[in-house]
Structure formats: C-alpha cells, structure tokens
C-alpha cells in the first residue's frame, strides 16, 4: 500500500513541476510552487521523514510562496513568452539526465535494508543514541549532537541570508510614508481582523510546543522559529506593517538574529571550557546524558530565535518594499 501512495505522490509532483515549467502566468506558477512544496512534504511524510516533512511544509508551502507573492506584487505577473536558448537548455538537460539515468541503473534498489547506506554509519545512531543522548527522536539527536556543527552552519546560513536581504533592501533610507495603512486595514475586513486576533495566540503556543517537543517527536528549533515568525507575519498582514513594527522594531529583530547564533556559538565554547572538544555537551551537567539534554535544548533555542528573527526580518523588509511599491504606483 505504501508503494502505491509513494508512486502517486511522485507522479503528482512530476505533473506539477512540468506544469510550472509550461505555464507563463507567474502567479499560477507561484501557487503551483506552493502545491509542489506541500506535495513534497507529504511525500517525505510517506517516506517516514517526519522532521523533514514538517520543515518542508513550513518552508516549501509557507514561506517561499509568501516571499514570491510579495515579489510578484511589485514585479507584475506577466512573463515574456519566448524562452530563449530553449534548444541549448534542452540538449544540456537531456545530456545530464541521461548520465543520471545511467547512474541509477546500478544503484541499490529503493528501500532495500542491505544498501550500504544503512550498514555503515547509521546503525550506531539508531542503537546507541538512546544510551548516549537519551532522547527518542534520533534525528534531533544526530542534528543537535552528533553532527551539531552542520546545524551551526545551517544557522549561520540563515543569518547570512537575513543579513544579505537586509543589506539589499533594508537600508534604503527610512522615508516610509507612515500614514499608508495596510490594504486590509479598512473596516470592511472585520472578519479577517477578528479571526486574525483569535488565531495569533494559538500559533505562538504551537510554536513553543514544537520548540520544546523536538526531542520526543517531530519538531525542533527551525520549525518552531518559522511558525513563530508566521504568527507575526499573519499579524502584520492583517493589521499592517507599522502595527507590527511598533511591537518588534527592526533593530530588535536584527539583534535577536545575531543573538541566536551567539547562543549556539557560546554553547559550543562551553564545551571547550568544560575541558572537552568544541560542541561536546557532556561536560555541561553532572552526568553526560543530562549534559547532552541541556546542550540540545540550548542550541535548539538558539536555532529557534535566529530562524524566527530572520524570517520576520525578511518579511518585514519585503512588505516595506511592497508598501513603497504601492506608494510609487499610486503616485505615478
């Protein structure tokens, strides 16, 4: 049964991707990209990768269509018809494709338990992680302890992206016309404002739940951060950018983003201070397992803060451009 679900999902994915390539209406393409994200999230779900499904849903179906929509709002949705270099693209793509297809023929069969991938490094995680780190969610234990440095890299990537976006769009001089309200703020949007007010608290609560539930079930710093940011984004969509800016202004968000990375870095440095290697939490508390727990919670917190801050920062900067774009349109 699992196989049929997996094959249908993959075929749906393929159809969506081809349709995205084919359509010339950008708005449809962005919506289809959202659907593509959700489909891949459900595919990951069927593959048993719960954490990855959660993240892909939050990012693939949530944040990236949101950002693309705000870009579309400024750049317009028409796309020029003629794809140039189509032939060159087709040739190079088919060549790479054939190389890949020929490579797949000799790959170990999908899902076979004796594929080398499952025999060498992975078994230790599954067997020993309970003893050494003591949390059921093996993905979080690998993510936060065995390969903690990768996650530090991940946090720094997000921080870099946030800074990059800030350097590009954030510093255009704050000549923002204050008086323009968000389009949703007219009284006629009563329903949305009421539902918005009702929804924001549960979202925040759910975000905290995901943050601290990471050890026992799917969840963790990154997903919690995104959901936390979504709460604020929903609020700014419904009540306008400057309403949100009053609560958490841009320099605070910037500081939070930097703070998250610092938290992560200093937890690692604590490892050195406690006489062990970098990012080794076993020295943080009495015995090594509680030390690992403490360490994992701390760095998950760091990840959560940075991701939430960066997502908020990116959205605020984009919607500031949106407002600036609208002002220009009204003016021109």
């Amino acid at each position: 049964m699992e196989l049929i679900l997996d094959i249908t999902l993959l075929s749906l994915l393929l159809v969506t991707a081809v349709y995205i390539a084919w359509t010339r209406d950008l708005f449809a393409a962005v919506m289809l990209a959202g659907i593509y994200g959700l489909l891949s999230a459900s595919f990951f779900m069927s593959m048993g990768a719960v954490d990855v499904a959660f993240t892909e849903a939050a990012v693939g179906a949530g944040i990236s269509p949101l950002l693309m929509l705000s870009t579309l709002a400024i750049c317009g949705r028409a796309q020029r018809a003629n794809p140039q270099r189509a032939i060159l693209a087709l040739i190079s793509v088919t060549v790479v494709g054939l190389l890949l297809i020929s490579a797949t023929l000799e790959m170990p069969a999908f899902g076979s338990p004796d594929a080398p991938a499952h025999l060498h490094v992975a078994p230790r995680y599954l067997t020993d992680s309970m003893r050494e780190i003591g949390i059921p969610n093996v993905v979080t234990s690998v993510l936060a302890s065995y390969r903690a440095f990768d996650t530090l890299g991940e946090v720094v990537v997000i921080f870099t992206a946030g800074l990059g976006v800030l350097s590009l769009l954030g510093l255009q001089g704050e000549t923002l016309p204050r008086q323009v309200q968000s389009p949703m703020a007219e009284p006629s949007h009563l329903v949305l404002r009421v539902v918005g007010k009702v929804l924001v608290p549960p979202i925040m609560l759910f975000a905290l739940y995901v943050q601290f539930h990471g050890e026992y079930g799917p969840g963790g710093g990154f997903q919690a951060g995104v959901i936390f940011a979504v709460g604020f984004i929903l609020y700014s969509l419904v009540f306008g950018l400057d309403a949100v800016e009053r609560i958490v202004n841009r320099s605070l968000v910037q500081a939070l983003a930097a703070l998250g990375v610092l938290v992560y870095g200093t937890v690692g440095v604590l490892g050195i201070v406690s006489g062990r290697n970098y990012l080794d939490y076993s020295g943080l508390a009495g015995d090594s397992v509680t030390g690992q727990h403490l360490g994992i919670i701390a760095i998950e917190l760091g990840v959560g803060i940075t991701v939430a801050a960066v997502m908020m920062l990116v959205f605020f900067v984009f919607s500031a451009q949106l407002v600036r774009g609208r002002v220009v349109q009204h003016a021109s």
Binding site: F27, M31, G34, I35, L38, A57, A58, A61, G62, P65, L66, L69, S70, L72, A73, I74, C75, G76, R77, P183, M184, L199, I203, I227, V230, I233, L234, L237, L322, R326, Q329
Partner: peptide, 13 residues
Amino acid sequence: GSAKPGAGGVHSD
C-alpha cells in the same frame, strides 16, 4: 499588480 493577499500564513494553497 496588486497582490492577491489571500490567506497568508500556513494555509495559502
């Protein structure tokens, strides 16, 4: 070019 804000947040598909 005005955006179809639709319902932002998680449910935007």
